[in-house]
Structures are given as C-alpha cells and as structure tokens.
Amino acid sequence: MKKIKGILITLILVYVATALLGENFLGGYNQGKLLERTGLYGLLGIGVAFVIIGGGIDLSIGSVVCLVGCGVPWLVMRQGWSPTSAVAMAMLVSLGIGLWHGLLITKLRLQPFVVTLCGLLIYRGATRGMAEDQSQGFGGEHEGFRALGTEAIAVTDKFGIPFPFVIMVGVAVVAWIFLNKTIWGRYLFALGNNEEAARLSGIDTDRMVILSYVVCSMLAALGGLLFILNGNSAQPSDFGNFYELYAIAAAVLGGCSLRGGEGTVVGVVIGTAVMQLLKNMINLVDWLKSHMEFLIVGVVLLVAVMADEVLKRRVAKRR
C-alpha cells in the first residue's frame, strides 16, 4: 500500500483537476473510454512489470504489438485463416519470441537491452515484409470477433465497462496472485534483487527469467490483438511505435524499480491510468494544447518519481 501511495495521490489529483477543468469529463462515454484505454495499455504495462521486477527490460513490446496487430488481420483477411487459428498463431509466435529472448539472455548471457532492442527492429521489419507495408484491418467484417475489443458490459445507456478493461483486470488479478501468492513470484522478486544470491539459494533463476520474458511478450501480443480489434486499422511502419516506452513509464510510475526486485501490479495499472488520464486531459482542457502532450506527460512522470524518492528517503531517515 505504501508503495503505491504516491501514484494514487497523483491519479486522484489529475482526475479531480480534469473533472474541474475539462468539459464533459465525468460523462459515461468518456469514463468508459478511459477504462478502455487503461485496459489496452495496462496489459503492456503488466507484462513489462514482470520483466522489470526480474531485473530485465523489454524494448520489443511495441514491435510485438505491431506484429500481432498487423499479423492477425493479415492472416484472417488476406490468408483466409479463421480468427481462432489466427489468434492461436499469434499467441504461439509471441510465446516463441519470449522464449527466444529469455534463452539468449540466460544461456548466451546477452544483455536484455541489446536482445530486445534487436527484437524491436526485427519484429517490425518482419511485419513490414509480411504485410508488404500495407495497412491491415478487418474492413467491415468479423464484427463478432472484434466485439472482444470494442464492446462493453453495459451499466447505463451511456456507460459500460469495456471488454479490454475486463480482460486487463482478469490478467491483473492472475498476475497479482502469481507475484504475491506463489513461490515463483517470490523467486522473481528475489532474483531481481540479487540474481546470484537467488541462484545460490537453489532457485532456477534462468527458468524464472525466461518465464518473465514469455509473460511480457504474450501480454504484448494480447495487447496488440485488442488494439487492432478496437481500432481496426494498423500500419506496419508505425503501429505500436513507442508503446514499450509507455509501458515502461507506467511501470516505473507504478513503483517498479529499473534496478529490479520491486513493483506492484496495482501500481502499474494506476500508472497506466495516470498516463491515459493526462492525454485525455490535454484534449479536454481548452488551454492545454496538443503539442504540449509529451511535455506534460514527461513533467508529471518526473515529478511523481521525484516525490516518490523524497518520500522514500524520509521514511528511511525515520528508521
């Protein structure tokens, strides 16, 4: 709880500020959209949190989003696959990607930054080649399949809880149980803090590292799938660009330390919500201009991280 205090306060502050300054912010439509975006980006954040807690980093998330976001409609619309087999394929490929990253990092001892940076280039390049740089989408077809990304559980006539959010919450609950209630979660935190000590305590650290990359790539794939189902338009050259950075930023906002061994799922989800809320705020508040987006997001991120550090030092001093 104390670990997410700072980000929770930030969320409330930004929420109240936007409610006061923005137009129609509290309307059911907008609230639903905020949940939807938190769901979509939150999946990526939860995925990268696993890797970060384990002491690694994954820069290939945006490209995996692109690979799946373009690959699934490409398989369905151009290759005539059924949606089910296309999704199965996407999950299989992302599992392979995570496995591959993990093996290179543990067995060949390559640096995670390098491995996943190469991944970032390779998967985007492969997608562009596969889709021949063509925009991908489902046109007007496969409405039932797409409902997974577009529909919501209606609450009022204006407000519903979007499926992507429901899916993300489900993933978050499983992730929370994994990290806090299973021995594997404890192992992941242990190895993120001190891989050598964890290994010397009899933990199969390699297996845990590989698992964290698999989880990250598969959640990126699930995110990519929902992004394309939701938006229905993906261009191989730019779909998912920088999404790894949004995911990492949300994870850091939510209390993950890039040194490893620290982080909470709830924090990451709140961190994602703050990022999406800020973007929403910039569009809804009249005197905030859209070209200020990166400036505002960057400043808020930095202030939140600074406040967090100051709080931590105060607590440490009091000991």
Binding site: F25, N30, D238, S290
Partner: peptide, 23 residues
Amino acid sequence: TITDQFDRAKGKANVEDMLTKHE
C-alpha cells in the same frame, strides 16, 4: 485541428475525446 503523429490508437482517442468535449 488535432494531430496524432501517426499513432493510430491516439488518432482514435483524439476523435473520442472530441466527442466527449463537444457533444
């Protein structure tokens, strides 16, 4: 006039935010 810098998810979010702001 709202730009999205070619980020499609953002492009869609821009439209949604406009629908929110100006019903």
